Computed example of a mutant assay.
Amino acid sequence: MKYTILVTGAAYGTQNSSSAFLFCKSLLKTKHILHSVFFYCDGVLNANSMTTPAIDEFNLIKAWQGLNKKYKVKLYVCNSAALRRGVIEDEKTLNVNVVKKGNLAFFFQLSGLMELANSIKICDRIIQF
């Protein structure tokens, strides 16, 4: 089966994201196809590179990045929800050679709800956390 995962909970403070991550790992171990993970609402905070857990805590952001590196799972972040929560990409201003440093973590990519709709269309299941 082909799956899309929708994550709406922040990386820390709720169980949503860590449950979603563990579910994704289980899918991949059982040879299912994980098409993509879409982060929406507070879930976009999973893509904030400025989030730094305590040294003895599980680093969920790095775990998501590892999922992309090892299994090539697409990590989509809702652009509108990210902007409302201060998660931005690097920006270059056209009139001045100034680069604003963004905090979107590596391997996450900003996208719109159309990407989520497309993923739902081509997958057998969508699971929301």
Rank of each mutant, 00 (worst) to 15 (best):
F106N: 11
F21K: 02
F108V: 08
N48A: 01
Y71R: 01
L104E: 06
V7T: 10
I33E: 15
T14Y: 06
S119V: 04
F39Q: 01
F38S: 01
N95Y: 14
A81N: 10
L110R: 07
I120T: 08
K69Q: 09
N79L: 08
N46Q: 10
S19Y: 01
G13C: 00
L75P: 06
A63N: 07
K2T: 10
K101P: 00
L104Y: 07
L75Y: 02
C24K: 11
L67C: 07
T14P: 05
K62C: 05
N97E: 04
T52K: 15
T8Y: 12
V7Y: 08
I126L: 13
V7H: 08
N68Q: 07
S80V: 03
K70V: 13
C41V: 05
K31V: 03
L22N: 12
V77D: 04
G9T: 00
Y12D: 08
G86R: 01
I55Y: 13
I55M: 13
S36Q: 13
Q128W: 10
N59H: 05
K121Y: 09
H32T: 07
L110V: 04
F107G: 00
Q109I: 02
S17H: 02
S26A: 11
W64T: 04
T52V: 12
K70I: 14
T52D: 08
S119I: 09
P53C: 15
P53Q: 14
N97Y: 01
S17C: 08
D56F: 14
N59M: 01
N97C: 00
T8E: 07
I33F: 13
E57M: 06
I55D: 14
F21D: 00
T14K: 11
F58H: 06
V96N: 12
S36V: 06
T51R: 03
Q15D: 12
L22H: 11
Y71H: 14
L28Q: 05
F107N: 13
Q128S: 15
T52I: 12
K121R: 09
S36E: 13
S49Y: 02
F108N: 06
Y12S: 09
